[in-house]
Design a protein around this nucleic acid. Structure first.
Lengths: 165, 165
DNA sequence: CGCAGATATTTCAAACTTAAAATATTTGTG
DNA sequence: CACAAATATTTTAAGTTTGAAATATCTGCG
């Protein structure tokens, strides 16, 4: 049986919570706080400046990285949201003319979603402004702190990585 | 006019994006990634273990810290969500018998929300388990990294603090 | 007192989100 | 080939979330 840092050496077990456990909880709450605050700011800017939303921006961003398009399932996996969720966002972006659904050869269950010319142009503009917003919201974050933050968050990410296929 | 790190010294301006700006964007995307992954895990555990949800847990947690209860507006401010949002969550928690709405003396517009005995008992149990989930999900996070993470995130939080009243 | 503006909360419409069920299609196995 | 299982996506119901409008009440000023 596997023993991790939260018990074992200290002999702690059951419901008693260690200092380390509490520090991790504080870290999580702080992540949540920053994440909510920044998302709120970006949501408002996205709405006022572009009349759009963060989920739509996220879909456009994913498709901008994969210019040949992505399947719905790739999209939802990449964004870490449910399939059904992506269906709705994609419907709206199609209605706005920013993306299209293209049938897949030899598999009529699937479809590929990709940016239209207009979607590509719109996203390129929005992405620049978006980056400037983030940089401004993070303007107290030095280069070295940014690197440290990324490193630490990656160790957390990697821990609960989705199991292999 | 104020010049910050993202221009000024390098003479960069307008749409050109600096390395620092890109590092900050990567940091933000990593925060988002971790935040989504952990929230997803906690949401599932909360549902399977307690038949409940994260927003309800958050409300209970806020009320557990303020045993004398909070006004709706204090609650929504503390959770950084809209007033209308809290109304719905509170309605459901009242229906579950975990909290109650109490009228406020001398102000019939307002009401105070507080835990019932059952809500207090239930939350105390859930909080212990919740902390253990977080500690497990963050088990790769050392004590020193937790401290560094909290420090860095606080500098970001403080930057866009809500303006004073 | 009377009432305009401020304050506290709820309601509402639209969007986002999930988990589960439904639909459509493909694949593998006898 | 038949057809069960697997796969890709959409639909659905319930809940969460926002921003704006509506409601109710309070406060202060003339």
């Amino acid at each position: 049986m596997n023993m991790n840092n939260s018990e074992g050496l200290t002999g702690q077990a059951g419901n008693e919570t260690s200092d380390l456990s509490k520090a991790r909880l504080r870290a999580w709450l702080q992540i949540l706080k920053v994440s909510r605050k920044i998302e709120g700011e970006l949501r408002e800017k996205m709405r006022l400046e572009f009349g759009s939303t963060l989920p739509r921006f996220d879909v456009l961003a994913a498709l901008y990285r994969e210019r040949d398009g992505m399947r719905m399932s790739e999209l939802s996996k990449s964004l870490m949201v449910s399939n059904g969720n992506v269906t709705g966002i994609v419907d709206r972006l199609v209605a706005e003319g920013l993306i299209v659904r293209v049938p897949v050869e030899n598999d009529r269950r699937a479809s590929i979603v990709r940016l239209t010319k207009e979607g590509e142009k719109d996203f390129a503009e929005r992405a620049l402004v978006h980056e400037s917003w983030v940089s401004e919201l993070f303007s107290d974050l030095s280069s070295s702190d940014a690197d440290a933050l990324i490193r630490i968050l990656r160790t957390i990410s990697h821990h609960n990585e989705a199991p292999h296929d």
